[in-house]
């Protein structure tokens, strides 16, 4: 997979589109689900954290779910950075709806990542299976999930460091 460059143009994120007649055709990058992650100032997912017991949440939790936490003091928190692969698997067949993907389907690696920020997260890996190992270091990125109506829909993913 060619590495995608994301640039902010007039407030909209774009990815490198088809180059027709030598001119750059931008493809609008939009989140597959709005409000869950950000590309500004480095890729992060938008969650929160209980300041009382330190439990991190993604997506945001309205209240702390820790039954051993006496209070619930929630503060918004953007989680990004690096982590290590706890485990991984492969989507060898197209998952059923509501998953969306570009056709023809291409299998992808799913990583379970223990992040330095305290979250164990799931996400697609940008890298091919041959390079993925338990214990390898990765970083959070935002990358294209599928295309629809001329737009590139993005999600958080992980990339080997």
């Amino acid at each position: 997979m060619a590495e995608k460059r994301s640039n902010e143009v007039d407030g909209a994120f774009v990815e490198e589109g088809s180059v027709a007649g030598g001119s750059f055709v931008p493809v609008l990058r939009v989140p597959a689900v709005p409000g869950l992650f950000s590309e500004e100032g480095g890729a992060t997912v938008l969650g929160n954290k209980c300041l009382a017991c330190g439990t991190p949440y993604f997506p945001k939790a309205a209240e702390c779910h820790n039954p051993r936490c006496g209070e619930s003091r929630m503060a918004d928190c953007a989680f990004g950075g690096k982590g290590v692969i706890w485990s991984y698997s492969v989507a060898d067949f197209p998952p059923p709806p509501p998953h969306k993907f570009d056709k023809p389907f291409k299998s992808y690696v799913i990583g379970v990542i223990d992040m330095d920020n305290g979250l164990r997260m799931v996400g697609q890996m940008v890298d091919p299976l041959e390079h993925v190992r338990v214990g390898a270091q990765v970083e959070l990125v935002v990358d294209t999930l599928y295309h629809e109506e001329g737009k590139a829909y993005t999600s958080w993913k992980f990339k080997l460091v």
């Binding site: 597959a32 689900v33 869950l36 997506p59 706890w86 485990s87 991984y88 698997s89 492969v90 989507a91 998952p95 059923p96 709806p97 509501p98 998953h99 969306k100 993907f101 992808y108 799913i110 379970v112 799931v122 996400g123 697609q124 338990v134 214990g135 999930l145 999600s155 958080w156």
Partner: peptide, 23 residues
């Protein structure tokens, strides 16, 4: 959110556990 943003059906959940056991 898990299926739209990641695409991780049941077998892939089991497969991550199986892979971890191999490790």
């Amino acid at each position: 959110l898990r299926q739209r943003c990641v695409g991780m059906p049941g077998p892939s959940f089991w497969a991550t556990l199986a892979r971890r056991r191999m490790f």
